[in-house]
Computed example of a mutant assay.
Amino acid sequence: MSAGVTLCVVQETRLDTARIRAARRVIDPIFLDTPLYRCEALEPDLGCAVSIKLETANPVRSFKARGTEVIATQLADSDSRAVVCASAGNLGQALAWSGRGRGLDVTVVASRFAPVAKLDRIRALGARLELVDGDFDLARERAAALARNDGIRLVEDSLDIETCEGAATIGLELVDSAPSFDTVLIALGGGALATGVGQVVKTAAPGVEVICVQPLGAPAMTHSWRQRRVVTTDSTNTIADGVAGRCPIPEVLDDLLLVADDAVLVQEASIITGMRLLLQHAGLVVEPSAALGIAAILEDRDRFAGRHVVTIVCGSNVDVDAYRRWVGAAAHHGA
């Protein structure tokens, strides 16, 4: 897709630049203006200039609160103060945090197989937590049923435009403050982060390549992007639980098709190596989804050689025992 084509279609997405700028005014500043810095220590392993946008240094340790802050602000001004969402863990924490500060009644539906650390934090933040015996997409179905039955607001990550436009404020910070970068690598799950950041970057800096990264074990959105139609999968098999969806949302895919230049799939071993490199060279303990950008560079060094790449480190809610297992094994095998 050429930059010229992208420029003429980017405004047709569901996202709106004025609303994205307005979102900055209602998001708690604690989630804004996150660190962005060149990480030279990573560069010998990766063969290119790498800057990190660090979305973990906040009370919920992920970027998701940028979107839930917008939603919670709206709900606080409405008659209905009850809200439900399905979550792999990070959205639930963010909605619980944003809702608690505004007196909302928050219910989160999650898989009982979600990382215990994420579930514990959702409870600690005062949300009601309901667990399902299945994966994230089953949790989505249950959350929708609760919303229908109880007549309360359903927050659907990536479908609700506020989740995309909240995430898009990261893009504003990138284009406002970064030295010239030519590529941005974005974890791809439901698509809120990719469509939000992609929208802003393609509008403000159309020459920058927007590349989405997904695990081989959870490829539904990437296959959908490549085939320009929704492609679902029967199951997922990846340690990157935060991006492990099976059923892409058509409206989100439509947006992604307009703002993403490429979507790539990476192996589990590369994700683990990326986590280890971020620990060793940046002092960062991250969840697997946050290492997808590093994994993409590791798997295609020639593509990124000579470039200045920004990768968004999107979350650090990880089970400590699992993390030790993964990163320790990677170090042991010299991956």
Results as ranks from 00 to 15, higher is better:
105 D>P: 02
36 L>Y: 07
109 V>E: 08
61 R>H: 15
160 D>M: 02
25 R>L: 13
221 M>V: 13
198 G>H: 07
159 L>Y: 14
1 M>L: 12
179 P>E: 14
46 L>F: 03
250 P>Q: 10
135 D>T: 06
43 E>W: 05
221 M>S: 06
114 A>W: 02
282 A>C: 08
106 V>T: 11
162 E>A: 15
326 W>C: 12
149 N>E: 15
174 L>T: 09
133 D>L: 04
10 V>E: 01
289 S>E: 02
149 N>I: 07
98 S>G: 06
335 A>N: 14
11 Q>T: 11
81 R>E: 02
99 G>M: 08
254 D>E: 15
35 P>F: 09
188 L>Q: 05
327 V>S: 04
63 F>D: 01
142 R>G: 04
52 I>F: 05
141 E>K: 15
205 A>G: 01
130 E>G: 10
309 V>Y: 10
3 A>S: 13
165 E>I: 00
335 A>H: 13
110 A>L: 12
229 R>M: 09
83 V>K: 03
267 Q>G: 12
282 A>P: 01
6 T>F: 11
215 P>C: 04
6 T>K: 11
182 D>V: 09
225 W>Y: 13
258 L>H: 04
261 D>C: 06
179 P>K: 12
174 L>P: 09
210 V>K: 11
121 R>K: 14
101 G>H: 12
276 R>H: 13
224 S>E: 07
324 R>V: 11
169 T>S: 09
184 V>A: 10
94 A>F: 07
216 L>S: 13
179 P>M: 10
326 W>Q: 10
329 A>D: 12
305 A>L: 07
157 D>F: 00
105 D>Q: 09
281 H>G: 01
195 T>G: 00
140 R>G: 15
229 R>H: 13
318 V>Y: 06
22 A>P: 03
136 F>H: 08
118 K>D: 11
16 D>H: 12
217 G>C: 05
